[in-house]
Design a protein around this nucleic acid. Sequence first.
DNA 1: CCACTTGTTTAGCATGAGCTAAGTTTACCA
DNA 2: TGGTAAACTTAGCTCATGCTAAACAAGTGG
Lengths: 148, 148
Amino acid sequence: MARGSKNPFARTRDDHALETAADYAELILRLTETEGEARAVRIAQILGVSPVTVSKTVQRLQRDGLLVAKPYRSLFLTPEGEALAIKFREKHAVVVEFLIRLGVPSVVAETDAEGIEHHVSELTLEAFRKFIGAGRPHQVDVAGRAKG
Amino acid sequence: MARGSKNPFARTRDDHALETAADYAELILRLTETEGEARAVRIAQILGVSPVTVSKTVQRLQRDGLLVAKPYRSLFLTPEGEALAIKFREKHAVVVEFLIRLGVPSVVAETDAEGIEHHVSELTLEAFRKFIGAGRPHQVDVAGRAKG
DNA sequence: CCACTTGTTTAGCATGAGCTAAGTTTACCA
DNA sequence: TGGTAAACTTAGCTCATGCTAAACAAGTGG
């Protein structure tokens, strides 16, 4: 125990759990907005895993207080889950926009951002924002897309 | 199987395995250079995990052909392992340098790079290199490319 | 040359994340 | 209404990554 904190390595299972949580939360929020509800089968399709995996993961996230799921029904984020979703959506949007500004093709930017967003500190994110802002003014809308 | 490929999510256990492999390979190379040999106990200290974890991971990496380990002796990378180490060392150097150029404090850059380096595609890395090169001529450490 | 310290491995456990197969529930339509 | 298809859950397995406790090697100093 008392692992990490000082060393730059030290990624633990907890980190992975947080990544998963953030991905699910983001996705549930998105599906709720775009499809009216978040169903496990859609999550499975989008994440490319089996519905079984989604079911079990959802149970863990419910245990951890990020969402509420009545059996055989659609999924709902708790306030905590929604906060997480919004936080990562914003991170995601910043990273994507940043990469695009750098000249990375948008499809690649999207893919890379998915991995990177879980590893950028607040300071680095701030540097990204500054870089974006330096180009031209911009805004990020509710769905996390940049307009400008 | 046949998961992902097209979708931007889809990080599997294999991805994590690769990250671990790359981290160990990088570290073993570094320790070999700086301390004359790579011992499990040092890896454990640096990564912030128990020696037991290192022992088991080393066995997996040996099984996967990345290193050779005789019981109770120090660790040696195979050519494949060394290639991986060098590849990620270079990625790491580029990411760190890039973040520093962006204005991220070097300690934070180092930490964030550790996570980011496993998620940047070749295209994004190329964009990073271009950005670095655009500033002023420069040089990158030991095995790192790009002298300008 | 033997004991002790240090390093490594084994045994055994947990948890996350993945799977297939099989069983339940819901929903919808004839 | 009742049957079926789709969605979901349960059971039971795998593997990677972590741990502690305990056993076992290696190296060092008396």
